[in-house]
Design a protein around this nucleic acid. Structure first.
Length: 645
RNA sequence: GCCGUUGUAGCUCAGGGGUAGAGCACUUCCUUGGUAAGGAAGAGGCCAAGGGUUCAAAUCCCUUCAAUGGCUCCA
C-alpha cells in the first residue's frame, strides 16, 4: 500500500496510507477532534469526512465554527428538511435546497397541498426526530441513465431538469434514512449532529428564479449543533430588529409613511428633516471645495426629453405614468441627468470651461413595484446627492479619481469600513435591447474605468450584465451594522447621452467635440442613506448630525429659569438644544434622554446655578464633568470639527 | 407584479360570534427629587376599508388597501 503526505494548516506533515479519510486522520490526532469535525477541505475543496484521500494533500478539518463547516451543516440540514417533508407529505417534489449565509432553504412543489406556518412546529419535530436516529449521509456515484430513471419513477420533473444539465460521470446521489437526493455534496457525517432546528419562514420562489416559471414554496430554516446556539441566534435576531431603520425611524420620529400619501413616499418628520439639512450642508461644502457648482431643475419634464435621452424605451416601466396637458405628456423625472444635460447645453462651452461639474440634491420619482418597496431603502420618491461631470477624454481619469477620493472621504467621515466597488459591465448579447448598441464605445469606456480602478489600487469586483443602458458603472456595496447589504451609491460613465442631446464643446482646434459624462451620487439618496445611517449608528447619530444635540435636565423646577438662560446661550451658538421641563426625577429624565439617543445631557441644579456651569453627561453614561457654557460650546465645536475631518 | 404572513388606543401587544383590554406614552394633581423608570387620577379606539353569512360580526367568509418575509427588479 502506498503512502501519502498530508499537510495540516499548521504546516506539519504526516504520513498515512493512501485511501485514508479525513475522519480517520482526525481520529489519529484525537477522538475529541474526530467527534467535532463535520467536513474536510482537501487541497482547497470541501469534501465528506469519509471520502478516501488518494494523493498527497493539504488538509483542513472543518468544524461547525468554520464558515465552510456551517455551510455543509446547513446544506445537510436542507436534506433533513426534505426527508421530513417527504415523510409528512408523500409525493411532494423538490427543487433545490442550498445553504445560505444564515441557514438554508428548500424549494418545494407541494402540488395541491397547502403548507402554512402553522405546520412549522410539526416539521421541526419531525426533523428533530429524524436527526436523533443519526442516519449517515451516504454518497453514491450514479450514471446519468440511472439518475434519470430514479427521478422519472419518483415523478420529480425538477430534479430531472437539473440532471439534464449535468454530464454523465459527474452525478452523485446522497442518501440518509429513507431519503435520496441528487446532490454534489459534501455533507456532514450523520444527522445526529443536528441538535436544534428552527423553521424561520415561508415564501414563494420561482423555479430557477425565472418569473415565467412555476412558483414553488420556499421553506427557510436554520439548525445548530447545540440548543444554546439556537437561543443565541434568536436573541441576535431580536437585537438586529431593534436596530432596523424602520423601527428606529419610528421610535426616534425620523420619518413615517401615510396611507393617504401613498406607498413608498416617505414623510420626513422634523428630526428627519434636520438630519437632511446637516447632510446637505456637509455635501454642499465638500462639493464646493471639489469644484462643483450647484444647479436646480424642476420635478417634471415633457415626454420629448425622455425620448431624446433614450430613457423611455429602457426605463418606462419604472416611471410614474405621464400626465397630459394640452396634448403633451409630462413625466415626473426618474433621474436628474437629462435636466442637467439641458443646463450644460444652455450656454456654449469651450474646452477651457471643462470639466463642468453640476451638482443638485434632486428629487426623483420612480415607480418601483409594490413588492420591492422596503422602508427607506427602496422608495418611490427619492432625493439624490446627484452631480454630473462633463469632461474631455483626457480629463476623464483625473475626474474619475477625484470622485473616488470623494467617496473615500465620505466613508471615513461616516465610519464606513466594509465596502466593495462593483464594476458593472454590459452583456454583448444584449446590445440594442438592454444596452445602447455601440460595441466599440462599451469596450473603450469599460477599459478606461478598469484602468482607473487598477491604477488607483481600489479593491473591486467585475460583474457582467449590470451596467446602465448608457454605459458602465461602479456601484458601491456596503453593509449596515445588522448585516444588511445594499447598493449605496453609484458612479456611472456615460458615452451615449452627450450624443443624444447633441452636447458639445469647442476644442483647441476650434472644432466641436463631445464631452464624456460622469454620473455620481456618493451620498446616495437621502432616503437610502439615512436608512443606512440609522442602522449603522443604531440611532445614535454623531454630534454633528444629531437632530437634537443636547437636552438640559433641571434637577427640579427651581432651576428651570437657569436652564432657560443656558438654552438661550446655546441657541446663540447654533447648538440644537432643548429642556426637559417635566416634573420628573432626574433619573427618569436621563433614562428618557438615553432612549431618545441624545448625544449630550446637561444636568443643572443648585451647584451649577451657583457656579454658572453645567454638568455634562454623554449618551451612554460617560461623565464629562462640570464646565462653563462657553467651555461646553468650545468642546462641542472641537468635537464636530474632529468628526468631519 | 407573484407567493406567504399580518392589520385592535400615539407605541408594543393581549383578547375574540353577544356591542373593547394591559403596559408604555399623553393630560392633570401630588411630589422638588443629583446621573437609566416617584405616586395618583383622567383622557384615547367605526377593532385598516368595503361587501357578505348570522337574531347578533372587531371576531367567520370574500374583495380592496397597507405593512411585512421572500421571489423578480433596483439608488
Amino acid at each position: 500500500m502506498s503512502e501519502i503526505k498530508i499537510t495540516l494548516p499548521d504546516g506539519s506533515v504526516k504520513q498515512y496510507e493512501a485511501g485514508t479519510s479525513a475522519l480517520q486522520i482526525a481520529q489519529s490526532i484525537s477522538e475529541g477532534l474526530a467527534r467535532n469535525i463535520i467536513a474536510a477541505k482537501v487541497n482547497g475543496k470541501v469534501v465528506d469526512v469519509t471520502l478516501p484521500i488518494l494523493t498527497d494533500a493539504d488538509l483542513v478539518l472543518l468544524k461547525w465554527e468554520d464558515k465552510e463547516g456551517k455551510n455543509t451543516f446547513w446544506h445537510s440540514s436542507a436534506h433533513l428538511l426534505a426527508e421530513a417533508l417527504e415523510f409528512l407529505y408523500p409525493g411532494v417534489k423538490f427543487g433545490i435546497g442550498p445553504a445560505i449565509d444564515s441557514g438554508f432553504y428548500y424549494d418545494i412543489d407541494f402540488g395541491d397541498h397547502k403548507f402554512t406556518s402553522e405546520d412549522f412546529s410539526k416539521l421541526e419535530n419531525k426533523m428533530l426526530e429524524l436527526a436523533k436516529s443519526d442516519n449517515k449521509y451516504e454518497r453514491k456515484e450514479v450514471s446519468k441513465a440511472d439518475a434519470t430513471a430514479y427521478f422519472t419513477e419518483k415523478g420529480d420533473q425538477y430534479k430531472l431538469e437539473l440532471i439534464q444539465d449535468l454530464n454523465d460521470g459527474e452525478i452523485t446521489f446522497y442518501s440518509q434514512g429513507n431519503f435520496t437526493d441528487l446532490c454534489r455534496g459534501p455533507h456532514i457525517p450523520g444527522t445526529g449532529f443536528i441538535k436544534a432546528v428552527k423553521i424561520t419562514s415561508l415564501a414563494g420562489a420561482y423555479w430557477r428564479g425565472n418569473e415565467k416559471n412555476k412558483q414553488l414554496t420556499r421553506i427557510y430554516g436554520i439548525t445548530f449543533p447545540k440548543k444554546a446556539e439556537l437561543d443565541a441566534h434568536i436573541l441576535m435576531l431580536e437585537e438586529a430588529k431593534k436596530r432596523d431603520h424602520r423601527v428606529l425611524g419610528k421610535d426616534l420620529e425620523i420619518f413615517c409613511f401615510d396611507d393617504d400619501v401613498g406607498p413608498g413616499l416617505p414623510l420626513w418628520l422634523p428630526k428627519g428633516a434636520a438630519i437632511i439639512e446637516r447632510l446637505e450642508e456637509f455635501a454642499k461644502k465638500t462639493e464646493k471645495e471639489a469644484g462643483y457648482v450647484r444647479v436646480k431643475s424642476p420635478h417634471i419634464a415633457k415626454e420629448s426629453m425622455y425620448i431624446k435621452s433614450g430613457h423611455l424605451p429602457y426605463y418606462q416601466d419604472s416611471m410614474f405614468p405621464p400626465m397630459e396637458l394640452d396634448g403633451t405628456k409630462y413625466y415626473l423625472k426618474p433621474m436628474n441627468c437629462p435636466h442637467h444635460h439641458k443646463i450644460f447645453d444652455a450656454t456654449p462651452k469651450s474646452y477651457k470651461d471643462l470639466p463642468v461639474r453640476y451638482a443638485e440634491y434632486g428629487t426623483c420619482y420612480r415607480y418601483e413595484q409594490s413588492g420591492e418597496l422596503f422602508g427607506l431603502m427602496r422608495v418611490r420618491s427619492l432625493t439624490m446627492n446627484d452631480a454630473h461631470i462633463y469632461c474631455t477624454k483626457a480629463q476623464f481619469e483625473e475626474e474619475f479619481k477625484a470622485v473616488n477620493n470623494l467617496y473615500l472621504k465620505y466613508f471615513k467621515v461616516f465610519g464606513i469600513e466594509k465596502y466593495v466597488m462593483r464594476f458593472s459591465k454590459h452583456d454583448p448579447k444584449k446590445l440594442g435591447q438592454k444596452y445602447i448598441n455601440s460595441p466599440e464605445l462599451w469596450k473603450e469606456t469599460e477599459d478606461m474605468v478598469r484602468n482607473v480602478l487598477i491604477s488607483a489600487g481600489i479593491p473591486y469586483v467585475e460583474v457582467e450584465d449590470e451596467a446602465a443602458f448608457y454605459g458602465p458603472k461602479i456601484d458601491i456595496q456596503i453593509w449596515s451594522a445588522i448585516g444588511r447589504e445594499f447598493t449605496l451609491a453609484t458612479n456611472q460613465v456615460d458615452f451615449a447621452q452627450a450624443e443624444k442631446f447633441d452636447l458639445s464643446f469647442i476644442n483647441e482646434k476650434s472644432e466641436k467635440e463631445r464631452p464624456l459624462i460622469l454620473h455620481r451620487a456618493p451620498l446616495s439618496t437621502h432616503e437610502r442613506f439615512i436608512g443606512f445611517l440609522l442602522e449603522h449608528y443604531a440611532g445614535k447619530f454623531p454630534l454633528w448630525l444629531a437632530p437634537e444635540q443636547l437636552i438640559i435636565l433641571p434637577i427640579s423646577e427651581k432651576y428651570q429659569e437657569y436652564a432657560e438662560n443656558v438654552l438661550k446661550v446655546l441657541k446663540k451658538h447654533d447648538i440644537r438644544a432643548l429642556i426637559d421641563d417635566r416634573s420628573e426625577k432626574t433619573g427618569k429624565k436621563i433614562r428618557d434622554a438615553e432612549m431618545k439617543k441624545l448625544p449630550l445631557m446637561l444636568i443643572v441644579g443648585e451647584k451649577e446655578q451657583a457656579e454658572n456651569t453645567v454638568s455634562v453627561r454623554k449618551q451612554g453614561g460617560e461623565d464629562l464633568g462640570t464646565m462653563s457654557v462657553e467651555g461646553l460650546t468650545d468642546w462641542i465645536n472641537k468635537e464636530i470639527e474632529k468628526q468631519l475631518n
